[in-house]
Amino acid sequence: MATRSDSNRTETVTFGFDWVSVALVLGGVLLLYYVVPMVSLFLSVPAGDILARMSNPTVVDSATTSLLSASISTVVATLFGLPLAYWLARTDGPVTKAVLAAVVLPLVLPPTVGGIVLLTVFGPGSPLGDAAIAAGFPLTRSLAGVVLAQIFVASPFVVVTAKAAFESVDQTLEYASRSLGKSRLTTARRVTLPLAGPGILAGVTLAFARAIGEFGATMMLAYYPRTMPVQIWVAFIELGLDNAYPVAILLVLIAAAALLILNTVASNPWE
């Protein structure tokens, strides 16, 4: 018995050493694959040059459009998403599963397909699209179009992340609050939301990051006004890679800020 376990241990050590090295190399290569291109991007253009190009009106316009539209989309997604997230967190059954599947659909759907789907509802030729154009508020080739595209792809992040945050709040605490004579609204405001807060903030941050990076559905729905991702595309096609750098760097900085929020005030859902 003792001999056998000894020989086993020796084998484990021998093989274990090799596999650990292989695993380290595999993981390390992947990590470099993430980091090296980022560093490379910042080294591609002299810092002074970047600052100069960032004051270019097209860059400023696209940044304004992106920040404005992503802010609106995030607020709308949060407003509409939290009640759904709470319902998903507090119910269970086939209906809940089906609803959750519908929520996750935009996450797995290719964004361009998402754009096409949206065009059938909001595009010119659709009843809603035509009515909106007649009312002087076109839903495509407008800021509204950008927002619609962003909400479609980004709001699931709010719903899914906030759902997990609500689930982490023990329902007994809500019963306790209500048994103390507090209404559902007071309970939500003073017990549920504060406790789920960091998780909800994570969802909001992820949704904002996704909205600001949205390209596929936006291209289909609203090529104008140009958002930063669209501006990158246009600059790259018309003027070459160098001209796409400034906006790309801006987007990297925004992504870094989102990560910072996730790892400080919000509760990182992937930790």
Partner: peptide, 18 residues
């Protein structure tokens, strides 16, 4: 339940942790 005036002390206390 908020209108019942029935007080309940839960098993682990159910105090609000925040």
């Amino acid at each position: 339940l908020e209108d019942r005036r029935v007080g309940m002390v839960f098993q682990e206390g159910a105090l609000f942790p925040h």
